[in-house]
Design a protein around this nucleic acid. Structure first.
Lengths: 163, 163
DNA sequence: ATGCAAATGTTATAATGTTGCAAATTTCCC
DNA sequence: GGGAAATTTGCAACATTATAACATTTGCAT
């Protein structure tokens, strides 16, 4: 039993957050990258759910903290977190989500439920392999893959049957 | 010899444009969708190269035509063209590119050269298959795939060796 | 011709993201 | 510890991308 698809199931989400923050601290330690309070707080905010958060949403939440931040503060924190593999940007949504495989050197693939908004990050070697092969066939030197799947998660498929 | 990867090679680009416009007229005819002058002109502008064009670039070019258009004009034309499978939006670039397989019911995969900016659209059944399988494995009902690969095209790989 | 639906025009505004520079903080080396 | 260098933050202004709302015009069928 794979215990997969956490975002789509009820779970103790505090554990997600705690784990993510602990991982982040470890990773930054290892790379001697500075996980400053603002950066850590932004990461925590991003992790508050499995729905991607826009930069301006983060900004608004910081404002609720009493932190009177401007957009560059948020974008810089997000850049840092991306650089260090702690969050991903979802291009099709202009939003950010906590990385579910921080540190692991992976190619993310995102299943985005257009009903509930939750996102599941997968690592699918067969997909990366096929993409790599397709790029090779064109002699294209692959650098970065954006792979975002929109659709309906299992839970929302059921829900749509009987409103 | 597959004669592939047209965008990355010298070619008679006027033929691309002519063909694209002819295809568009056919397709719109079949679907009784109205390819109005503005829409057709926007499509032509998008096809002026194999580099994706931003909505505001299109707007600027329309302005050069003497067409004093506002953003909604362009976005509406682009929406129409997307609806009818004539252009694709590249989410990672916020830009639009002519569809290389108009009418064919395909899942686009885009190889984006970060040096020259050209984009090659591929149809790779093995990739779509792997993606579909990965989605199935999570019981996710797939709706739409965004797959954009950034990297270096063959030509630009060579060029970067000897400035 | 008239009436309806689709398409376009127009104005304003929302949402997202960046630049540039100054001030503060941390690091690192002596 | 002291001080130069580098990193991080604050801040103001601005750039880019996209949409809302409503009026007007056009195409087309009756």
């Amino acid at each position: 039993m794979p215990a997969r698809a956490l975002p789509y199931r009820p779970h103790n989400h505090d554990a997600c957050v705690t784990q993510a923050l602990a991982d982040a601290r470890d990773i930054c330690q290892q790379r001697s990258a500075r996980l400053t309070p603002t950066r850590e707080r932004v990461l925590e905010l991003i992790w508050q759910s499995h729905k991607p958060l826009g930069a301006y949403d983060v900004l608004a939440q910081l404002a609720e903290d009493g932190h009177n931040a401007a957009p560059p503060t948020v974008y810089r924190a997000l850049d840092f977190l991306q650089q260090n593999g702690l969050v991903h940007r979802i291009a099709s949504l202009n939003a950010f989500i906590g990385c579910a495989h921080a540190g692991e050197h992976h190619t993310g693939m995102f299943l985005i439920c257009r009903a509930c908004g939750n996102v599941l990050e997968l690592t699918a070697p067969s997909v990366s392999g096929a993409v790599q092969a397709a790029a090779d066939a064109e002699s294209f030197e692959l650098d970065d893959i954006t792979l975002e799947i929109a659709g309906l998660c299992p839970r929302c498929q059921k829900d749509s049957g009987h409103e």
